[in-house]
Design a protein around this nucleic acid. Structure first.
Length: 935
DNA sequence: CTAATCACG
DNA sequence: GACGTACGTGATTAGC
């Protein structure tokens, strides 16, 4: 059957209502294997199943869809900003369940739709009107009274709870007027739940009375003077505008533009494998069994879908389809592009990739995009290729033939790329998203295979496309070098011949889609869905905005410093040459070693396999007592570092367009969950030395703004106190004590009031050492004390805090047993070398001890960042930078106190409600016109 | 392209 | 008993 018309019956299910009802009706169930909250999903599935079972007889549907509210504001908020303003935000344990309910709907093979800027009710209204015009019947499965305005002429409602059909009479019973006047009554009566104001003092009863008397709302308002009751008359006149706004709020939009047709909603039988696979993954044993019985197949057990290790093949491993670059299509006309976009709509998802002229997203120009619908079925859309490999005198800079116009292609792609119901799948989507945003396209929603790999395999391998393709698809992608070359003669992608670009670019999208198919089910199987959904995916847009904002860096300040450093260095170089007795390159460790140990024969030997002398800072520091030269070299090196890495290099990173420095955060750079920062690295701007710290003076606020820095105080030690359960430490943090002094006092039996800075310094080193997986050797070197003495400190520390040793032993044992360790939020860090022999074992052990602590801290600040934009909404603030335990903001002068209050609350409460810490988190704040002052 | 060095949390 | 050791990053430079 195709088409929709007479004899057809469309059922529209209010999905969001289902979710909330399920959530509130059921206890907070969690998935047994990983604690993912699934209560609402389970209730939702039950309701869907009951619906499907009941869908027989004369009222059975021929077409069906589940409609969801889209997250975020609707067009009604533009009309009235207080609309639904009193609604509390969705509970934390419900949020991760929203996407799962969409998945559940698809698992039932039922269409599901939502559209940004609209509420489910509007979509339902539009569909109802269209179905009615086509001569079909409609049943709206919902008990929401707002939908009653749609009833009549073949449209009915079905209250799923009471299993009661509501027709025209039902509506009159409820509102006292017919469906066509329901909005008028609602406009007058208002709605406290949705915060629709209405007319004060008028309820449904009075409203219906008035409407029935005057016919409709407009007439009533026009003739309000005639109303006999003085109070009512005055209210209607006084609140006329508010009533009219209310009507706009309750009036559903019947003429929305939809990105799908009614025909597409035709009912389909569930595919048992898909449905049961989903249910088993959710670990709904009873429902799985019941539905399997109904479908007449064997129920898969949880074990079927959850294999043992990350490398175990998924139960439904896609057959390996070979990669054939000749199958990829080059899209060069509008019809063809429309065809691919239509296919994306049909699927609900599409793998997507962009090709550009630069790795710098702030400057990259779009050259083409590729799409992949299913494994092996991909295309490339060239839009910015040039005619020749070089810019010659014969028009080589001209556009290549056979390409769509950039604006035309983007115009066609934009609605799909921004459509909330179409999932865009990519590898490192932050890059593509940033590039597209400069073309006015706000990409979303997205899935990212790189982030999935990170959630699944951190510690096992890196997460680049080449690694993933080779490891999971047994395929080596076309190297980009083969197209662009390397070194000096490297070309940009716009100069790659289109035919070559098609093979390369479409393959990337193809690989991405295949990786996604493989990784998506594994997230559940490996119990990292929550990590991916709460710590990875939502961070992408946050980082994207921080990167695009950049931070203002004052070139003159840096330039002046560079000059000063250069002068001082030249001076030092002279002194160094004099002290050495000959000319040599101070920057060469090799030459320096020869001068120190051969020419001057200072003590200190060769090291390493290459036979070179070691001339690290610690060695020079020791040598400084013997000779003046090492000290001079140390000073020179400090200046050299500051100049080359900071005052010089940073200037080159100032974007000519924005005058700001735009770093790039890598979400998958550090195994522990930390971010890393590149191009430039803004997470290692000097602070420890006085000279270095002055570089931060160049990081400034715009005129009328200030820089605010908020940093977690001792977050890793607090986490250690929590995970190891050390009461003394917990108490000390509760009392706001100096934690290093307390450690010193405990260890060396020195009362706090007699504490010396030296004893405290040693204790501080021990505290840090503990976090790093302390060893006698390491502590000895750090404190420059004999190894035996350092070992004595450590022994004493463990004696005093036995819980810490127990925690360390348990962590190492867990790693040995499982091959990974975990943060408090469920992030897994794999430790493949933990069972190695030899020195490697020591490394792996210490890394395993450190990872849960460092990783939990990283998770906490990630949570804070994800929530931050909401927490500081309405304030004239920009979040600019993250430095592991610190967030940097630029804020309009005067708003800094409010910002500190809001941001601090978000940071200190970032672990809630997922994890209840025994130790409270504490955040220090600083304000200034530059970063040096704010820190 | 790698090792050494040093900047940060 | 000896291994040789603090945890996690990125940028720059020298020198093959």
């Amino acid at each position: 059957m195709s088409g929709f018309g007479k004899g057809c019956h469309l059922h529209l299910i209010d999905g969001s209502a289902f979710i909330f009802r399920a959530y509130h009706a059921l206890p907070p169930l969690t998935r047994k294997s990983d604690g993912l909250p699934v209560g609402a999903v389970s209730g939702f599935v039950n309701m869907l199943q009951r619906y499907v079972e009941g869908n027989t007889g004369p009222d059975a549907a021929t077409h069906v869809a589940v409609i969801f509210d889209h997250s975020g504001a609707s067009f009604r908020n533009a009309i009235y900003d207080q609309y639904k303003a009193h609604r509390p935000p969705a509970p934390e344990d419900l949020k991760p369940q929203f996407p799962l309910t969409r998945e559940a709907t698809r698992a039932f093979n039922i269409a599901c739709h939502e559209i940004e800027g609209y509420e489910a009710d509007d979509i339902i209204a539009t569909l109802s009107c269209r179905a009615r015009e086509a001569g079909g019947r409609v049943t709206i499965v919902s008990s929401d009274k707002d939908l009653m305005q749609l009833v009549g002429d073949g449209v009915e409602m079905l209250d799923p709870m009471k299993n009661k059909r509501i027709d025209r009479e039902g509506v009159e019973e409820k509102f006292g007027v017919g469906p066509e006047r329901v909005v008028d009554v609602q406009a007058l009566a208002g709605d406290s739940v949705d915060n629709v104001p209405g007319a004060p003092g008028i309820g449904i009863k009075t409203a219906a009375l008035l409407i029935n008397e005057y016919g409709d709302l407009e007439t009533l308002l026009d003739r309000a003077e005639e109303i006999k009751q003085p109070k009512r008359r005055q209210t209607l006149i006084e609140f006329r505008e508010q009533i009219e706004i209310s009507k706009k709020l309750v009036q559903l939009d019947c003429e929305m533009e939809l990105d799908f047709t009614i025909e597409e909603l035709e009912i389909r039988d569930p595919e048992p494998e898909k449905l049961l696979g989903f249910l088993a993954e959710m670990e709904f044993r009873t429902i799985t069994k019941r539905i399997a019985d109904k479908l007449g197949v064997d129920a898969p057990t949880v074990a079927d879908v959850i294999p043992d290790g990350p490398d175990a093949a998924p139960a439904d491993a896609p057959e390996t389809l070979p990669f054939n670059p000749d199958d990829y299509e080059c899209v060069s006309d509008v019809e063809s592009l429309k065809g691919w976009i239509a296919q994306a709509y049909e699927r609900g998802y599409v793998a997507f990739d962009t090709e550009t002229t630069s790795l710098n997203e702030m400057q990259a120009e779009l050259v083409g995009v590729s799409l992949c619908i299913e494994a092996g079925k991909a295309c490339y859309v060239p839009i910015g290729h040039r005619a020749s490999a070089t810019d010659d005198l014969f028009g080589g800079n001209a556009r290549a033939e056979g390409q769509l116009d950039l604006n035309e292609a983007l115009g066609l792609l934009k609605p799909m790329l921004e459509d909330e119901s179409i999932l865009k799948i990519g590898q490192n989507m932050k890059y593509d998203s940033k590039v597209l945003s400069r073309y006015g396209i706000m990409l979303g929603p997205i899935d990212d295979t790189m982030l999935m790999s990170y959630a699944l395999f951190a510690g096992i391998h890196n997460h680049g496309m080449d690694t993933l393709a080779e490891r999971y698809l047994d395929h080596t992608p076309i190297p980009i070098k083969s197209l662009l070359g390397s070194g000096k003669s490297m070309i940009t992608f716009d100069r790659v011949p289109v035919a070559d670009a098609v093979k390369y670019a479409a393959e990337d999208a193809d690989i991405t889609l295949r990786l996604w198919e493989r990784f998506k089910p594994q997230l559940h199987q490996q119990k990292v869905t929550t990590v991916y959904e709460t710590l990875e995916r939502p961070l992408v847009p946050v980082l994207e905005r921080m990167e695009m904002r950049g931070v203002k860096v004052d070139r003159d300040t840096l330039s002046r410093m560079s000059n000063a450093f250069a002068q001082k260095m030249a001076q030092l170089e002279d002194e160094i040459q004099k002290a050495a007795g000959r000319d040599f390159n101070v920057g060469s460790p090799k030459q320096l070693g020869e001068v120190l140990f051969d020419d001057l024969s200072l003590p200190g030997g060769k090291k390493g396999k290459n036979g070179a002398y070691s001339t690290g800072a610690d060695i020079l520091e020791d040598l400084a007592t013997e000779h003046e030269l090492p000290r001079l070299v140390l000073d020179w090196r400090q200046l050299s570092k500051l100049k080359s890495t900071y005052t010089d290099a940073l200037q080159n990173h100032i974007d000519p367009e924005t005058g700001r420095v735009h770093t790039s955060y890598m979400q998958t750079g550090a195994n522990t969950g930390r971010l890393s920062s590149t191009d430039p690295n803004l997470q290692n701007i000097p602070v420890r030395s006085e000279e270095g710290r002055r570089i931060r003076e160049a990081f400034v606020a715009e005129p009328g703004n200030v820089i605010v820095s908020l940093d977690y105080s001792q977050i890793e030690l607090r986490i250690l106190a929590h995970v190891a359960g050390i009461d003394t430490l917990k108490q000390a943090f509760r009392d706001g004590q100096d934690i290093h002094a307390l450690t010193a006092s405990e260890m060396f039996d020195v009362p706090l009031e007699e504490m010396t800075s030296d004893i405290r310094r040693q204790a501080k080193a021990i505290n840090f050492g503990v976090i790093y997986g302390i060893s006698g050797f390491g502590l000895a070197r750090n404190l420059r004390i004999p190894r035996a003495e350092a070992q004595g400190f450590i022994d004493r520390y463990f004696e005093r805090f036995p819980g810490i040793r127990a925690y360390m032993d348990e962590t190492v044992k867990f790693a040995k047993d499982n091959g990974y360790v975990q943060t408090l939020f469920g992030r897994k860090i794999h430790t493949p070398e933990i069972n190695a022999k030899g020195p490697t074992a020591g490394f792996a052990k210490r890394a395993a001890i450190n990872a849960p602590i460092q990783g939990t801290a990283a998770d906490i600040i990630r949570r804070a960042m994800v929530r931050m934009e909401d927490a500081i909404k309405g304030l004239p603030v920009k979040m600019l930078l993250q430095v592991h335990d610190e967030l940097i903001f630029e804020v309009e002068e005067g708003a800094e106190d409010k910002l500190i209050e809001k941001a601090r609350a978000a940071m200190e409460g970032a672990a809630d409600p997922a994890v209840k810490l025994d130790v409270k988190l504490s955040v220090d704040a600083g304000v200034g016109s530059n970063w040096a002052q704010a820190h």
